[in-house]
């Protein structure tokens, strides 16, 4: 008979797999000539649509919707770029030195250079290499993504205990999953959690990149993306 305490924890990982959003497409405008403006416009539009998806996804994380609306907002405002970056990293795992921003938008170094995305490219690749080395699987990716949201270190949390409970349940889910799936490596959960500082560092660079794009004012940005950038 399996220990009853383990059942709900495994459930969290399977639930996170079920609520994982559908594939997303960049759909760059074919009538616009290639170059910096087109690449950045495509990425900003993609990010805006992905943010809507992320907000919907967050509501399906067990325990997230029980937080106050203010705390839900604070966590998302802190962690949204980490979640975007983590998704790019996971999509890029099957590729060689290419970043898969969307199913139809993979960028290699040469294309990144010619379209003004080299800084972003260079910032995200180390995280892809680290994830490849760890051979991160989908269950681990969805759990880490939820942990990144719960662990976003927002300065404006009203109910710290409730956020701590969310962190604990996701952390336990990861440990439980690793205990079952990777018993050969008792440090695997720790190794995965140790990627989070690099994720935060990478997301910070990405926010700075898009903030400077906003300040230059050459690329149209949708309202939600602007709102989230301003919250940073």
């Amino acid at each position: 008979i399996p220990p009853p305490a383990k059942k709900p924890l495994t459930k969290i990982v399977s639930h996170l797999l079920v609520v994982e959003p559908e594939k997303i497409y960049a759909m760059p405008d074919p009538s616009v000539p290639d170059g910096d403006i087109k690449a950045l416009t495509t990425l900003c539009d993609l990010a805006d649509r992905e943010l809507v998806v992320i907000i919907g996804w967050a509501k399906h994380i067990p325990g997230f919707s029980s937080l106050s609306l203010g705390d839900q907002m604070s966590l998302l405002q802190s962690a949204w770029m980490e979640i975007l970056v983590l998704s790019i990293v996971f999509r890029s795992l099957a590729c060689d030195e290419e970043l898969v921003y969307a199913e139809d938008y993979a960028v290699d170094e040469e294309r990144a250079r010619s379209s003004g995305l080299l800084d972003l490219h260079v910032a995200i690749l180390p995280l892809v290499r680290r994830f490849k080395k760890l051979r991160v699987d989908k269950e681990e990716f969805v759990t880490l993504k939820a942990i990144a949201l719960a662990n976003s270190d927002s300065m404006h949390i009203e109910n710290l205990e409730a956020v701590q409970r969310l962190q604990d349940s996701l952390h336990e889910a990861l440990q439980d999953f690793e205990g079952c799936q990777h018993p050969e490596d008792p440090r695997r959960a720790g190794k995965l959690l140790m990627t989070l500082p690099l994720l935060r560092q990478t997301a910070t660079k990405a926010v700075q990149h898009f903030y400077s794009v906003k300040m230059q004012g050459k690329v149209p940005m949708h309202k939600l993306f602007l709102e989230m950038l301003e919250a940073k």
């Binding site: 919907g56 509501k59 919707s65 839900q72 907002m73 309202k223 709102e227 989230m228």
Partner: peptide, 20 residues
């Protein structure tokens, strides 16, 4: 919340809380 209107609205769109 006024400043972050879209996020606020999207979070308020009803979905029943998930409690496993």
């Amino acid at each position: 919340k006024e400043k972050h209107k879209i996020l606020h609205q999207l979070l308020q769109n009803s979905t029943s809380p998930v409690d496993l």
